[in-house]
Design a protein around this nucleic acid. Structure first.
Length: 880
RNA sequence: GGGCUCGUAGCUCAGUUGGUUAGAGCGCUACGUUGACAUCGUAGAGGUCACAGGUUCGAAUCCUGUCGGGCCCACCA
């Protein structure tokens, strides 16, 4: 049987085949893994991508990182579950479909009606969902498709309704009227953290309500002043002290207002006139002031962003026109004192960019401050902060812990009702004044279900446990089935921009439902930016579709490109060049394997992967030792989620040690098959979590089993003997490098090589199996003609004689302090004298008959220390 | 206003509790390559680690300040 691989690796013709074999094996499902009963579980739930669009590079990064963790733990023998799903993304999806319909047929959602519109949404959804699942497979994601979930499917609907009811019964969910963030375009409320801020130049108008009113006020929104009920000043502001507590009746542009002068420390005396017109209906701060002072709320702007009825000529105007009209009127009446341009922080909808109107509305809320008996009389906020403070949940990088805590600390009650159609309809039914909250419609006629839907984050907040069968798998406070086996999960891996929107909600929801954390670690990756450091976005057209990269360079290269050169929490740039470099590496690995498979036979390839061959030469010891410590390091890097470092380390070993050194040596030394096979199998295992396709592909060329479920190698880098081997092997390697430098330097200086270059390595810590062997690196690239390793007690002189012919340079490495080192130091001193012209010969008789000799103490294991020594040697050679 | 973060080779970035003469990939220069690999090899050039102080035997790393990017939060009307 021969093992022939193509000269160049072709991902396109192999990846789909491999994925099919994995998927058909059923081993993505942890229930099918052959494991002992007490194997620990390892769970990640995939952050469900929105079904609004195809996956972008950010998703590709998520998939690459999580698949890496999953494959690593599967190899380590964990009961490994990676649970896939998608997110209905209520408001986002609705917007996308609305736009689509408008573009295609010119119709609005109102034209279609709720039922018809939702049909369109589901139609759209099936298409994008299909694309997303296809892309995930192309990425090589080893997701357990048998557990595929959707935030709006039947089991999740049951979960959401159950959660709503439980929270309602506990008094955590309540209905209330208050100022909320309203998007006039989406025609819906938004949570506080769904509001974004944009710096914009606005106009600050300073004016008086009417000529009799003593205090001029400043505002950027004169139209809202129609709803003013007070003017607030800072209690410390002397200018206005006398007015505090007084009432005025003013004629503001034809509308009669009752204005009370109040004091509030939130008013900045430096800003504008230091007097603030209080509009309780359209500002959260003002609303608070109104509550404090027992003032009425007058709603000026309606849900369409227009002035509501009862304001005369202004009613029905949109805010911009109303503002214009009011400013004109003020100017005409001679009340306008000044207009100046200022930088304003405009709040806009995070979905459509429309300016937000704060307005009073009756909505459903989740209380974050209510003490909950089942949580030990702690509130959701307190509990969610506690689990981060006591380290039950760790953030990586750690600095995000602070961000999370700060945000949590400032959290207000969460408005969860949305006036959109696509989503979980609120499980509340009304009949007159009656309210019913339950899983299904109550018996009896005339019950009307609340038409609103829930904030999309309500269902995605339940993701870790709703996907594992809650509430069915939660009986009388006991977890059963998947929920018992896989919850809490281990790692949540996601983007840092979503900590507040999602991560915090998941923590609160899980604490409420199960009184346990949803995950113990939060790994936050940075954003993938384009090569100019700009955020990839559809509108800018600078996005890269992962599928294009996969088609061009293969999945493995694409994965490796997003896994390396980045650190958690920091953004990283992505460019095609990077993927190309990774493709080149993968081809290198392919060719390394090709070489090994071609030079070994079936007999050797059939050995068990765990079989560890005994080293026969120094080179064997060196490379095996290197691999040992490599395994230990890679395992530790992966355990610490240091993906980039792990990949770099592996890359260095594979290319610079295995390919550049050991394979070159293997071309000239015999009996390398066992070691080569051992190296290959281990390298494939180590690389598999990063680049699953190519490694599995190579593995399959000489195995029937799947690499995906092999056993992760154990590093033995800690054993004493092994440490010795590694250390000595390093010395050998360094010595070879030095000799090479000498040879090249000699060539450069045109010094004729009259003698052979050999090395004697004096390594008294050397492991027994290496001592006394002649190792001939007859390798043109190293330029070494002979190498002899001796042990303490052996005479260097004897060693030299064993080496054939004349020897030009002796390099002697001593490792520990003591007699040998002192002796070497003496030689060193003699050498210095020789160079300085103070002596003609080296005193040690061992060396006198063979000049020039040189001693190098290579204890420090670093090539750079040779540079100075090298210069000295060249000096000596130059004087010959 | 508060907080976080970054500044290291031409470019993109590593640098794990402070430790010899700071690394990688890409790019660049020179030479080479018919037998694992041109998706390759060998060698090389290129860095006052933003700046200024301080702590230390020793600082890219710790502290203070300055300059310059980026981000988050907040009730500037």
């Amino acid at each position: 049987m021969t093992y022939e691989l193509d000269k160049i690796y072709d991902p396109a013709s192999n990846e789909d085949k491999i994925y099919k074999r994995w998927e058909e094996s059923g081993l993505f499902n942890p229930d099918n893994l052959s494991l002992s009963k007490d194997s620990p579980s390892y769970t990640i739930v995939l952050p469900p991508p929105n079904i609004t669009d195809k996956l972008h590079m950010g998703h590709a990064a998520t998939l690459a990182i999580e698949d890496l963790l999953i494959r690593y733990h599967r190899l380590r023998g964990f009961r490994t579950l990676w649970l896939p799903g998608t997110d209905h993304a209520a408001i986002a999806t609705q917007n996308v479909v609305e736009k689509k319909i408008l573009k295609e047929s010119g119709k609005t959602r109102q034209d279609l009606g709720r039922e018809k519109f939702l049909e369109e949404v589901w139609k759209f959804l099936r298409v994008t969902q299909g694309e997303i699942l296809h892309q995930s497979r192309k990425m090589g994601a080893s997701l357990d498709w048998s557990r595929l979930a959707f935030t709006l499917d039947e089991p999740r609907q049951l979960a959401v309704r159950t959660m709503f009811k439980e929270m309602y019964d506990e008094g955590v969910i309540y209905r209330g009227e208050r100022v909320v963030n309203w998007c006039p375009r989406c025609h819906s409320t938004l949570a506080d953290d769904e509001v974004e801020y944009k710096e914009k130049v606005g106009k600050l108008y300073t004016f008086k309500y009417d000529h009799d009113f003593p205090l001029p006020i400043s505002t950027t929104r004169p139209e809202t002043k129609l709803g003013d009920v007070a003017v607030a000043v800072n209690p410390k502001d002397r200018r206005y002290h006398e007015y505090i507590g007084k009432d005025f009746k003013v004629d503001f542009c034809g509308q009669t207002l009752q204005i009370k002068i109040i004091a509030d420390h939130n008013v900045d005396p430096e800003f504008g006139t230091g007097a603030l017109g209080v509009t309780p209906a359209h500002s959260a701060v003002d609303a608070q002031m109104a509550i404090n002072n027992n003032l009425p709320v007058i709603k000026v702007i309606d849900e369409d962003g227009k002035i509501s009825g009862g304001f005369g000529a202004y009613s029905g105007l949109d805010v911009d026109s109303a503002r214009e009209k009011i400013v004109l009127e003020l100017r005409a009446r001679g009340l306008l004192i000044s207009e100046e341009e200022i930088n304003n922080n405009l709040s806009v909808c995070y979905r459509c960019g429309t300016p937000i109107e704060p307005l009073p509305s009756r909505q459903w809320f989740i209380s974050v401050d209510k003490k909950i008996p089942r949580l030990g009389n702690k509130s959701l906020k307190e509990k969610a902060m506690a689990v981060a403070l006591d380290g039950q949940i760790k953030f990586l990088p750690d600095r995000f812990t602070k961000r999370y805590l700060d945000w949590m600390d400032n959290l207000h009650d969460w408005c969860i009702s949305r006036q959109i159609w696509f989503g979980h309809q609120i499980p509340v039914w009304y009949r007159g004044e009656e309210i019913y909250v339950g899983l299904d419609a109550p018996d009896g006629n005339d019950w009307q279900q609340d038409p609103d839907t829930l904030d999309t984050w309500f269902s995605s907040g339940m993701w870790t446990f709703s996907t594992l069968g809650w509430p069915v798998n939660y009986q009388k406070g006991q977890k059963i089935g998947d929920l018992a086996q896989f919850h809490p999960t281990q790692v949540l891996e996601t983007g840092y921009e979503i900590i507040t929107l999602w991560v915090s909600r998941m923590i609160m929801m899980s604490l409420f439902a199960l009184n346990e954390i949803p995950f113990s670690q939060v790994y936050l990756h940075g954003m993938i930016l384009d090569q100019n450091g700009k955020k990839m976005s559809k509108s800018k057209g600078n996005g890269i579709n992962p599928l294009d990269m996969i088609a061009k360079f293969g999945t493995d290269a694409t994965r490796l490109a997003v896994l390396t050169g980045s650190t958690p929490g920091n953004d990283s740039r992505f460019s095609e060049d990077k993927v190309e470099a990774k493709r080149n590496f993968i081809n290198k690995l392919w060719n390394i394997s090709r070489f090994i498979l071609a030079t070994t036979g079936e007999k050797f390839l059939a050995t068990r992967a765990e079989y560890r061959p005994a080293p026969k030469t120094a080179a064997d010891s060196w490379i095996i030792g290197e691999l040992d410590s490599l395994i230990t390091r890679i395992s530790s890097h992966l355990d610490n989620l240091n993906f980039s470092l792990a990949a770099e380390d592996l890359h260095d070993f594979t290319w610079n040690k295995l390919a550049d050194w050991y394979l070159e040596i293997a071309k000239f030394e015999r009996n390398k098959e066992e070691v080569l096979v051992y190296l290959l199998k281990n390298v494939l295992k180590l690389w598999h979590p990063f680049i699953p396709f190519v490694t599995e592909n190579i593995w399959q060329s000489f195995n029937d089993s799947l690499l995906m479920v092999e056993k992760w190698p154990q590093g033995t880098g800690v054993s004493d003997n092994n440490q010795k081997i590694v250390k000595d092997a390093q010395i050998i390697s360094l010595t070879i490098s030095l000799i090479q430098k000498i040879r090249d330097a000699r060539a450069k200086h045109k010094i004729e090589p009259t003698r052979k270059i050999s090395a004697v390595i004096y390594a008294h810590s050397l492991a027994d199996e290496l001592v006394g062997q002649d190792i001939l690196f007859k390798n043109l690239r190293t330029g070494i003609d002979g190498l002899r390793i001796i042990k303490e007690g052996e005479k260097i002189k004897d060693a030299i004689y064993i080496l054939d012919g004349e020897v030009e340079v002796y390099l002697i490495g001593a490792i520990d302090a003591g007699q040998e080192k002192r002796r070497l130091a003496k030689e060193q001193a003699n050498l210095e004298k020789l160079i300085a012209g103070q002596s003609q010969k080296i005193s040690n008789p061992d060396f006198t008959d063979r000049a020039p000799a040189h001693i190098v103490d290579i204890e420090k294991n670093k090539l750079s220390v040779y540079q100075a020594e090298l210069d000295k040697i060249l000096k000596i050679m130059g004087t010959l």
